[in-house]
Design a binder for these strands. Structure first.
Length: 302
DNA sequence: CACTTGACCTGTCCGC
DNA sequence: TGCGGACAGGTCAAGT
């Protein structure tokens, strides 16, 4: 579920917490979730943190970068060790009405795969002190990968990705050009293709089509230039709104402090089938496209 | 070549 | 109550 806005929310939260910290220990509770040698990053200081598409990069001094993909159910939760990891305010309702079991708020929990412990500058001699970063992943699709920072290795792993939608080089003309490589695809399916535009997943693909007033089934070859422009704007709005509300939590997304995101309280179509359109009151419909749930307003999106 | 399906996983929900 | 099956959705490999 983490898409660009969710990963960006995590990056923004971690940025002022872990840069400058030194990794003291790496514990692999689920070794399969971690590729590479933990020794390559142990004792190294974190000097940078970036996001490309849905991938986070943790840059370490002297040669290594740790790439993290959260896939469906990944979380990165930071615990300073100085106060409760998860403030009481986070124990809110989840969409769908599931109260959050306290157990899931404890770190570590049964979905914790990797624990990073940092040197605590305040208590450098203690073995047990130090803040921690927990990589949790219920479904184990996500991964952490240690790669050499140099020799273009990181670039080669990222170079099949399409443009970053929130960067200025992502124009409507670029969007059109990349989409026209696949003339017959339904537009919503194409938006999930990371080589066309990166970072969009199933939630924001439906929302972007709604914002542009385009039916998600529409074949790319049938789109006008006005519709490419509207789609470009619709993508930006969906992603920016997602970031503004701290991401989308349908089941288990949380930010770096364990807090849910609120975008779905403002979404127009995603997970709103059988509910009235916020614009025209028509009942929102759900269909399957390429096996993925797709939501739209049959009246606003002809 | 264009496109679809299956695999990877776990947890929840629904019908019988 | 228990059980089987569908569903959730990111990405890649394999299949049509």
């Amino acid at each position: 579920m983490p898409e660009l806005p969710e990963v960006e929310t995590i990056r923004l939260g971690l940025q002022n917490k872990i840069i400058g910290l030194t990794i003291k220990q790496v514990e692999l509770l689920t070794p399969k979730s971690f590729q590479g040698n933990p020794k390559d990053i142990t004792g190294k200081k974190i000097v940078g943190l970036w996001r490309r598409a849905k991938i986070l990069g943790v840059v370490l001094e002297s040669d290594f970068t740790m790439l993290i993909h959260l896939k469906m159910s990944g979380q990165l939760v930071y615990d300073s060790g100085k106060r409760p990891a998860l403030p009481d305010g986070s124990r809110g309702r989840f969409i769908g009405g599931h109260p959050t079991p306290d157990m899931e708020l404890q770190m570590p929990n049964r979905s914790t795969r990797v624990i990073f412990t940092f040197d605590d500058p305040l208590r450098p001699r203690s073995e047990t002190s130090g803040s921690k970063l927990y990589f949790n992943d219920q479904r184990r699709f996500g991964w952490v990968k240690i790669v050499d920072s140099g020799q273009g290795i990181v670039d080669s792993l990222l170079n099949n990705l399409g443009p970053e939608p929130l960067e200025k080089e992502f124009t409507w003309q670029i969007l059109r050009q990349n989409l026209l490589r696949h003339k017959t695809l339904p537009i919503k399916v194409a938006l999930l293709d990371q080589s066309i535009v990166s970072g969009i997943g199933n939630i924001y693909a439906s929302e972007a089509c709604f914002n542009a007033k385009i039916n998600p089934k529409t074949s790319i070859s049938n789109l006008s230039d006005k519709q490419f422009k509207d789609l470009h704007k619709g993508i930006l709005k969906a992603l920016q709104d997602g970031i503004k509300h701290g991401g989308s939590t349908r089941t288990n997304f949380v930010d770096s402090e364990g807090r849910r995101g609120y975008f779905l309280d403002y979404a127009f179509v995603y997970w709103r089938d059988k509910e009235p359109c916020r614009v025209c009151n028509t009942t929102i419909e759900k269909i399957q496209l390429r096996g993925r749930g797709t939501y739209y307003c049959p009246s606003c999106q002809k």
